[in-house]
Design a binder for these strands. Structure first.
Length: 609
DNA sequence: CATAGAATGATGTTAGCA
DNA sequence: TGCTAACATCATTCTATG
């Protein structure tokens, strides 16, 4: 597997051999390395004028791109004979040949990557059986919440009120107001530990109303706890909040209720909650996999954007999650998917969750008046040297603590640019490898191979937070123990692939679509370094991924198990001063290609089943 | 030419308070 | 309820520099 056949060094190989076994062997070897199929234009990109100085003649390069993909040369010759030198048509034919040749039981059996070989320390090497044991006292709640309430009530009645946690007190209070325990606790989990009573009641009312009209949230309604608990106060308030619910309903009837971001962005749950969640959702028939799908974008998009996204993705409720619960850096994102949400588990080792844990060396220089424990969202640009110099000069004028005004000035810029303390009076932007670590990638994931420092920041800033996504994807591990076929759109630096790999989900076939060549190179080298046994097929433009091509891919690979991707946020992100045009913007409108491709995949697969 | 630096606000949410 | 202030935000584009 250490042969690198994706370069131009493979001219030595005698492709004219008649030996079937040898062909097969080479095919296996080559197919397991990665491929880069350009789809721009009628011919391969490398055949333009500049590349003509290469010693490799055009024809062999044209053939080579398919050889590298792992197709036998006879098939390639046949396909070229049929279609001429049109890479699209040739690929279609080749995939058809492959589909006809492959018998169903020939699906590659890929063994899990038990010993991942990333060289860094914080990589997947810690993956082991422990993840299975990561059960956080789930049953104490989900088995019978009413019993729990009874216990709490008993303690309360036994004058143990002071020993009750804030959460338990609130739960009791809500129960007294007549709300089912289950709904109350869901509300508390969703709204966060500091949620006020009105917020919680508001949430419960909204949930009740949406359940009444929303077929996607058909939870069992538990018996009302009014019968269990005595009514000891809160009656007046309940009346008030019922009034509030009425108003809300009025609003809902008169117009569309827009998606509201939850104050505490924990989605359908996070691994570190003291009390596990009991959220259950039942998706409508037509949205249930295969394939599973997973869509991501910025949570703080302009008004109405998430409503549109939801409308185009089967009206499934997105979950909004801030990665600050998984990492030392914030990242507020919406995730819309049809994955199960029960029995999720996090990646191990758990990443550092405070700045000091993530950057221990900074602790020494961190002034007490900078009270940050988490970094803000990592973006694509970093603070300048001039700014850090200004800050140093501003701070070092004072012996001890600088005056309030200076503190304010420094903190404003530190927060804005995610600056950290690296020396006496010295702040600095994060190093690229620190960003990699904070986002859950192996160290040096984006380093080298002709990639500039600026490009590293840019690629990383546009990426998934791996731990967050992996937590959501973790349910796939038991569903696909023998390997998964992934269609990864807008792959970037491979956040989805890295997440699945670190989870121990064997990657059988990955079709990765990514516009940036720099990013494709990063994923390719990661794929090789981690000794993946599956196939990686690269495309560069989602817009050129036609239904026909998808059909051929599905026939060839046996369908996709997961369609995953986060479409461009350029025109949605708050940092964009120039072209924050919403979903219709130049790049962000590619969301509709995600929808188109997902729809195509679903319809093609349902026809083939 | 490639790379890094610097300048360029607006939108939306939340908290606090009268 | 309505106002204000505080705060965060997967960025773009021109310019300098080698």
């Amino acid at each position: 597997m250490d042969k690198n056949l994706s370069g131009e060094d493979n001219d030595d190989i005698d492709w004219d051999t008649e030996d079937e076994l040898e062909i097969q062997e080479i095919q296996d070897t080559v197919f397991s390395s990665c491929t880069d199929l350009r789809t721009t234009g009628q011919h391969v990109v490398c055949c333009d004028g500049e590349a003509s100085s290469s010693s490799v003649p055009f024809r062999s390069k044209f053939i080579q791109q398919f050889v590298v993909m792992g197709f036998p040369e006879e098939s390639i010759a046949k396909a070229i004979k049929q279609n001429g030198e049109n890479s699209d048509l040739v690929l279609d034919s080749l995939l058809t040949f492959k589909a006809l040749d492959d018998s169903p039981e020939e699906q590659p059996s890929v063994s899990p990557p038990l010993e991942p070989s990333i060289s860094s320390d914080d990589s997947a090497s810690e993956y082991n059986e422990n993840v299975l044991n990561n059960v956080y006292e789930e049953d104490s709640w989900s088995s019978d919440s009413d019993n729990y309430i009874n216990t709490v009530k008993q303690r309360y009645l036994n004058d143990e009120g002071s020993s009750l946690s804030e959460k338990e007190k609130m739960l009791l209070f809500l129960a007294n107001m007549g709300y089912p325990a289950e709904e109350a606790s869901i509300a508390m989990d969703r709204c966060g530990p500091k949620a006020s009573l009105p917020e919680l009641v508001d949430f419960i009312c909204a949930a009740q109303m949406s359940r009444a009209e929303d077929p996607y949230l058909l939870e069992d309604v538990k018996p009302n706890l009014k019968d269990i608990l005595n009514d000891c106060g809160g009656y007046k308030k309940r009346k008030m909040y019922n009034e509030l619910c009425k108003q809300k309903k009025q609003r809902e009837i008169s117009g569309e209720e827009p998606i509201r971001l939850p104050k505490s962005m924990i989605g359908f749950g996070i691994p570190t909650e003291s009390v596990p969640r009991m959220v259950q959702r039942i998706l409508p028939e037509k949205t249930i996999g295969p394939p599973y799908f997973y869509y991501e974008n910025v949570a703080l998009a302009p008004k109405g954007v998430w409503d549109t996204i939801k409308r185009h993705l089967y009206e499934i409720e997105p979950e909004f999650v801030d990665s600050k619960y998984f990492s030392a850096t914030a990242r507020k994102r919406g995730y819309l998917h049809n994955l199960p949400i029960e029995n999720r588990f996090p990646l191990f080792p758990l990443p550092p969750r405070t700045i000091h844990e993530a950057l221990p060396l900074s602790k020494r220089w961190w002034p007490s008046w900078d009270t940050r424990s988490k970094l803000n969202c990592l973006q694509t640009a970093i603070g300048s040297a001039r700014l850090t110099d200004k800050i140093r000069k501003a701070v070092e004028k004072y012996d001890g603590e600088p005056p309030m005004e200076i503190q304010k000035y420094v903190l404003y810029h530190c927060k804005k640019w995610n600056l950290v303390w690296v020396g006496r009076n010295k702040v600095a932007p994060l190093e690229p490898d620190e960003v990699e670590m904070l986002l859950g990638f192996p160290k040096n994931h984006t380093r080298g191979g002709g990639i500039s420092r600026t490009d590293r920041y840019k690629s990383l800033g546009n990426s998934f937070q791996v731990d967050t996504v992996a937590y959501h994807l973790s349910v796939l591990r038991d569903l696909f123990p023998n390997g998964i076929n992934v269609l990864s759109l807008f792959s970037g630096i491979g956040g989805a692939e890295v997440a699945l790999y670190r989870l121990g989900v064997p990657l059988s076939n990955v079709v990765s679509v990514e516009k940036s060549e720099v990013n494709r190179n990063i994923v390719r080298s990661w794929w090789e370094q981690t000794n993946q046994r599956g196939n990686l097929i690269h495309f560069d433009d989602v817009q050129l991924l036609s239904r026909d091509r998808l059909k051929k891919l599905i026939e060839s690979l046996g369908g996709f198990d997961l369609v995953i991707g986060g479409s461009p946020c350029n025109n949605l992100a708050g940092s964009n001063r120039v072209s924050r045009d919403g979903l219709e913007g130049k790049e962000s409108s590619l969301f509709f290609d995600y929808v188109r491709i997902l729809d195509d995949v679903k319809s093609i697969m349902s026809r083939h089943r």
